[in-house]
């Protein structure tokens, strides 16, 4: 699959502070890519670099196969983290204005369609200042997509949204992917990232520490966890060979396996002595991997950045 965005050894510094450090990253066309990392790790800077709002000190950025120019690309839609709208403008006029800035002068039909989809049709001729926060966020999303971009960059699109509106935006993003649009979004919401994204990239202190689909990430960085429902006591589970720790979760035990342990071999071993009602190899959660890599006591990320 051709790449929509390619970053090669991209570095951006602010005085002595290195915001993005030799970043390599490829985003395949038509995929949804989650961009995660703790606050201040360089996510917004990276997105601004892709958008050509900022210029990299070193490295190469190719968007749609083209090297970095100086002008904004009309094929890229952008929803920044810090967002604002002209309060005195009417919603429809504002959306037309943003579409025209992207070179689309006939976006009225699309705007009407999106307003309808988000239940905002009756607000089209009201001023932005009359909208609630949730409505403003949806209007902002429409502003990013009304000009039919081929690449959509969303910086924290779900922050401050209630679950209902989060679902509305999620569905919209999935529909855009069906149309072949590439979507990059940064988020702190690990569950959304896991559910929505084809690939995940995590940066920590400007360096990439995680990149790939959930399957690959799970295999590479996930701890092996098994959920077990059996007659054996938690104490008995704890003493099984190859089990690092065992936590009782009520009806089942959660076993964390040592790195070399084969779950199938473990299952066989348990079956020899106990009846097993439930045995499940749990897919590691992104949230756990994130905490492991970026938590306050983590040194793992530091090590990875020297090897990735």
């Amino acid at each position: 699959m051709p790449a929509t965005v390619e970053l090669h050894q991209v570095t951006k510094t602010y005085g002595p502070h290195v915001a993005v450090d030799a970043l390599d990253w490829t985003i395949p066309e038509g995929s949804i890519c989650g961009f995660i990392g703790p606050n201040g790790s360089g996510k917004t800077t990276t997105l601004r670099l892709i958008l050509r709002i900022l210029y990299a000190d070193r490295g190469q950025i190719r968007v749609f196969g083209q090297d970095q120019g100086t002008t904004a690309d009309d094929r890229v839609g952008y929803l920044p983290e810090e967002r604002g709208l002209y309060k005195k403008m009417k919603v429809r006029d504002l959306l037309r204005f943003f579409a025209r800035l992207k070179g689309r002068h006939d976006a009225s039909a699309d705007i009407a369609k999106w307003l309808e989809r988000f239940g905002l049709s009756e607000w089209a001729d009201k001023k932005v200042e009359a909208l609630s926060k949730g409505m403003s966020q949806k209007v902002q999303f429409i502003a990013a997509v009304a000009a039919r971009p081929r690449l959509l960059i969303l910086d924290e699109p779900f922050s401050g949204l209630d679950p209902v509106n989060t679902r509305v935006i999620e569905d919209a993003v999935l529909d855009l992917r069906k149309e072949g649009i590439t979507v990059i979004f940064s988020t702190h919401d690990m569950e959304t990232a896991e559910d929505l994204c084809d690939t995940i990239c995590m940066i920590y202190r400007g360096r990439k520490v995680l990149d790939g689909n959930m399957e690959e990430i799970g295999q590479k960085y996930g701890q092996k966890i098994v959920r077990l429902q059996t007659e054996a006591s938690p104490e008995a589970c704890q003493t099984l060979p190859g089990v690092a720790s065992c936590r009782s979760q009520g009806v089942y035990q959660e076993l964390q396996l040592a790195d070399q342990t084969d779950p199938q071999a473990l299952l066989k071993m348990i079956l020899e002595n106990h009846a097993v009602r439930h045995f499940e190899i749990v897919r590691p959660r992104l949230r756990d991997i994130f905490l492991r890599l970026a938590g306050p006591e983590s040194h793992e990320a530091e090590e990875i950045t020297h090897h990735v």
Partner: peptide, 19 residues
């Protein structure tokens, strides 16, 4: 106002500073 209301960055996604 564009800075305070964070409109500037939305605009910068579509036009360069000179424009």
């Amino acid at each position: 106002e564009e800075k305070q209301l964070r409109i500037a960055e939305v605009l910068m996604g579509s036009v360069n500073p000179t424009q």
